[in-house]
Design a protein around this nucleic acid. Structure first.
Lengths: 107, 107
DNA sequence: CCATTTAGTTAGTTGACACTTACGTTAGTT
DNA sequence: AACTAACGTAAGTGTCAACTAACTAAATGG
């Protein structure tokens, strides 16, 4: 989770992720989109995105094709959602505790 | 945007954010929840969350009360959503370009 | 085998980040 | 004014991340 958020914190990695969102691309073609950074840097970014499971790799001879892992991205959205649902659940627990409290003090 | 993602990448900050999600809390009470870190460190985390506009501050005498900024959190979810809608739009643009291409070569 | 293409890896530098300790600041209290 | 409570801020340290340059590895073709 930490890994995924930290990976997305880097603008360059977000761009890479968008590039491989709809189409599968080899590292060279990804690197070619950036003129102010070396292939090595892009390769390392890809490594970070791969570690965060935001992209997946498919090998084809000497080439390695990358594409976004939509599932992981969806998981992040769900995590953000939990901030709402999670807090609602906590409120519900509080309410239930209050109910029990009433019962114990009563009997 | 970078700031917000980087702020969320830290587990401690995510905990702080959850603490002030439903209730407004002073710094001291937030710091009291953690026994393995100093008040100063918590204060700095709060500073990062504030810079990312994930929490807002309200002053009351010598105390400063914090609460989560739900709007900013919603913005992050929308950003993640754009990865889908955005790519759909790009596909649509491609389709439209192809249509125009047909027209120009034709006439 | 040798050269080429495609891509990952390592070494080293620079800058950012999390943390602690110590100090400064503002609002109440006596 | 002096004291206390509740915070933030500055300085210093260890660790991690991003980047470049140079090297290595695997597949392909003569």
């Amino acid at each position: 989770m930490d890994t995924a958020f930290r990976a997305l914190a880097e603008p360059r990695r977000r761009e890479i992720l968008k590039l491989v969102w709809t189409e599968e691309l080899p590292a060279a073609q990804i690197a070619a989109r950036f003129d102010d950074v070396t292939r090595s840097a892009v390769s390392q970014h890809i490594g970070v995105l791969k570690a965060a499971e935001l992209i997946v790799e498919r090998r084809d001879g000497t080439r390695r094709l990358y594409r976004a892992n939509h599932t992981q991205m969806d998981r992040l959205r769900q995590f953000l959602d939990e901030y709402w649902t999670g807090s609602l659940q906590r409120l519900q627990h509080l309410a239930e505790s209050a109910e029990r409290e009433k019962g114990t003090t009563d009997g």
